[in-house]
Design a protein around this nucleic acid. Structure first.
Lengths: 343, 343
DNA sequence: GATAAAATTTATCGCGCGTAAATAAATCTT
DNA sequence: AAGATTTATTTACGCGCGATAAATTTTATC
C-alpha cells in the first residue's frame, strides 16, 4: 500500500530484489518457487501493491485459463442469472471469465466473438441468438476454440450442446394442465426471436395430439425483446375479442405470461385453478419473478444450476481433450414442473 | 472469405502488398491513407477476412477509445437496462465498451477495476456497490483513469457524479400520496445494500415532516439481492401482524414493492386507490416490470435515458479535458412520477 | 567438504500491435 | 522539368508479459 506506483513486472522485480522470470513463475503458481523467495515476493507485494497485466499475460501464454461467455441479451434477468452462475463455477475452477452480450443483434454476436478471439480463451460458453446467428461465422469460431453451445442449439455447430429439453418442458406442462383441467391453448409471439419457441410449439402440438386433443395455437404480434409488453398487449387483445379457444393458457415463456397475467388482472379475470377463477395460466422457464406474479405463476423450470454445471463441466472435459470430442455431445436436461397458484 | 488464415498484421500486410505501419494507420483511420491504397487494403480485407487484435492494439496505444462499465449486479434487470443504454451511447460515439459486474461483492468490484486497469480505458462509468465498496481503492483508481461515478455516489471520489436525486424521488412520491390519501409509511430493508436507500429514507422523513406528518418507517429483515423475496416475506409479516401503521405503503424500491404486492395478493388485500381497496402501494425506480405488476405499480421513474446520456457525455467531457475537472461535478437529475393503478 | 540436485539469474526471443524518425516515392506547383 | 508537398515505406524501438536455454547460485545429500 505504498505510494510508489509500480507499473510493470520489471519494476516490481527490482523493488523485490528478485529476477523477473522468477516473479513470473510465482504469479503462474506461487508454490513453484522456494518458500523463502515466495515470502520475499509476498512481502514486497504488500508494500507495493502490484498486479500483472492480465491481457499482456494472455498474449503469449500457452493456456490463458480464460473462459469466454456470450449471452444473447444480458438485460433479460434469466440470462443475467445464468451468466452469473456460470461465472461463479468458472472462477471456482480457477478460470477467469470474460462476459459479453450480443444485445439481441447478429452484429453484436459477431463483435463479441471477435473480441473473444483476441483473448485466446481456453474455452467458450456460447448461448447463440438462434435464427439471427451467423451460422458460418460461429462454426468457424468453434473450429478455433473449444466451444460449448448452450441454451439454444445450432445443429451441428460446436463440439457440444447443453440445454433444457424443450419437449420435456412442454410435455410436463401439457400433462399437468390436461390432467387437472381443460386442455390448454399455446400462447406465443408470431415471430419469436427464439428457436426454443419453435421447439416448444412443436412439442406442445405433439403433446396435445398424443393425448387426443386438437392443438390450439394463439399467436400475437410483436417483435423484439419486450416480451412482457407483447404478452400484455396480446393478452388484452384476445380477452377483448373473446378469441381464447379455452380457459387454459400455456405461454411459450414466463415473460409472456407475466404480461398476460397483467392483462387478466386489468380485465378483472381471476386467474387460478379455484372455483371462482376464469382462467388458468402457465409458463415455461421459471423466471426469477415468476414466484412473485399475482397469482404466483405455475411454470416449468429451467434448471439453471444443472445447465451451468453440466455445461461448464462439459467445457472443461472438452478443454482437457484438446478441444475435440469423438462425436458431437448433446445433452438435453430434464425440466421440473413448479406448481404455484396460477394453474 | 478465403480459406487462408491470417493471424497477424504482418501476414496481412504481406498478402495486401502494403507495409504494416500503413495497415496500422488504416485501421486507426481508414481515411488517413491514400484512396488507392485504401482500396487495395479493402480489397485484400474482403479476400482474407483479417481483424486486428484489439487487446494488442490497446497495449501500446495512446488513446484506447475504450470505455469501461462497471455495474454492481448485472442480474438485476434495472442495471442490465442501464448498462445496455450506456453501451449503445458509447458505441455510437465511436468507443468500444468493456462491461463488468461486481456481482454484489467488494472483491468483485475490485476484480473488475483491476481488469479494467489492464485495458487502460479512455474512461470509466462506475456504478459502485456503495457501502461495500473499497473507497480507498476506488479513489486510487479514479486518480488513474477518468471516471464518472453514477447511480450511487461515493462522496468526494471521482471527478463527477451523475444520478437521480433521491430527495426528488421521495418528495414526489410523498407529495402525491399525501395529496390524494393518507400519508404513507416507508417500507425498506433493515440493512439495505444500497446507499440510495438511506438517502431515500432520509428524504422520506424530511418530506413527511415538511408536510406536518410524523414519519413511519417499517423495516424488514433480509440480506442480499433477492429484493422481491424480502419484500414478499416482509409483506406477509407485516400483514399477518397487522403492524402496518397506515393504509399507504411507500417502498424504498420497486423490487421490494413487487414482492410486497405478491404478499398482498396472496392475503386477499386489494391494492389501489379505488373505494374497494385496502391498501395503496408505491415504489421507486420504474423497474422494467413495474408496468406489469397486479395492479400496475405507481412509482417514481429513474430516467435511465437521461442518466446514461448525461453520464456518458460528462465522461466524454472529462476525457477531452484530460481527465480532470476544475471542481467535482455533481448532477442529480430530476425524477418523474408515474401514476398507475397501485396508488 | 565434495557432489548432485534444485532454484535462480541472465540473456534473448516471441506475442501482436503502436509510434516515431528517416527515407523513398508519388503528386502537385509554377 | 525542377522543386516543393504530400503520402508511403523502412527501420527501429516500445508495450507488458511468457517461454526457454544456458550460466550461475543455492540447497540438499552423503
Amino acid at each position: 500500500m505504498d505510494g510508489s506506483k509500480i507499473k510493470n513486472m520489471d519494476e516490481f522485480a527490482a523493488v523485490a530484489g528478485i529476477s523477473r522470470p522468477t516473479i513470473s513463475k510465482y504469479f503462474h503458481d506461487p508454490s513453484s518457487v522456494k518458500q523463502s523467495t515466495r515470502a520475499r515476493i509476498e512481502e514486497a507485494l504488500e508494500k507495493h501493491d502490484y498486479r500483472p497485466n492480465i491481457f499482456a499475460m494472455n498474449q503469449n501464454r500457452k493456456l490463458t485459463r480464460t473462459v469466454g461467455i456470450v449471452m444473447p441479451y444480458l438485460a433479460d434477468p434469466i440470462f443475467g442469472e445464468i451468466a452469473r452462475t456460470i461465472e461463479r463455477r468458472c472462477i471456482d475452477a480457477g478460470y477467469r471469465t470474460a462476459l459479453f452480450s450480443s444485445h439481441g443483434e447478429r452484429s453484436g454476436e459477431i463483435e463479441a466473438l471477435e473480441s473473444l478471439r483476441a483473448l485466446r480463451p481456453s474455452g467458450v460458453m456460447l448461448a447463440p441468438l438462434g435464427r439471427f446467428s451467423d451460422r458460418d461465422f460461429i462454426s468457424g469460431f468453434c473450429e478455433e476454440f473449444p466451444t460449448v453451445i448452450f441454451d439454444r442449439d445450432i445443429e451441428g455447430v460446436g463440439e457440444a450442446f447443453v440445454g433444457s429439453d424443450n419437449a420435456s418442458f412442454v410435455s410436463q406442462s401439457v400433462e399437468y394442465l390436461t390432467r387437472i383441467g381443460d386442455p390448454p391453448c399455446f400462447f406465443e409471439m408470431k415471430n419469436p426471436a427464439n428457436p426454443n419457441s419453435i421447439a416448444r410449439r412443436q412439442g406442445y402440438m405433439r403433446s396435445m395430439r398424443e393425448r387426443g386433443f386438437e392443438p390450439m395455437v394463439v399467436q400475437v404480434d410483436g417483435e423484439g425483446w419486450e416480451f412482457e409488453r407483447i404478452g400484455y398487449d396480446g393478452g388484452l387483445g384476445v380477452i377483448e375479442n373473446r378469441s381464447l379457444p379455452t380457459n387454459t393458457v400455456l405461454c411459450s415463456n414466463d415473460r409472456l405470461a407475466i404480461g398476460f397475467l397483467a392483462a387478466c388482472y386489468e380485465k378483472g379475470l381471476r386467474v387460478g385453478r379455484g372455483s371462482g377463477c376464469a382462467l388458468r395460466v402457465a409458463g415455461h422457464d421459471n423466471h426469477p419473478h415468476a414466484r412473485f406474479t399475482c397469482p404466483s405463476l405455475t411454470t416449468v423450470a429451467h434448471e439453471y444450476e444443472a445447465i451451468s454445471e453440466t455445461g461448464v463441466s462439459t467445457l472443461f472435459d472438452l478443454i482437457e481433450q484438446g478441444g475435440r470430442f469423438e462425436g458431437r455431445r448433446v445433452e438435453r436436461l430434464p425440466t421440473r414442473l413448479i406448481m404455484r397458484d396460477s394453474a
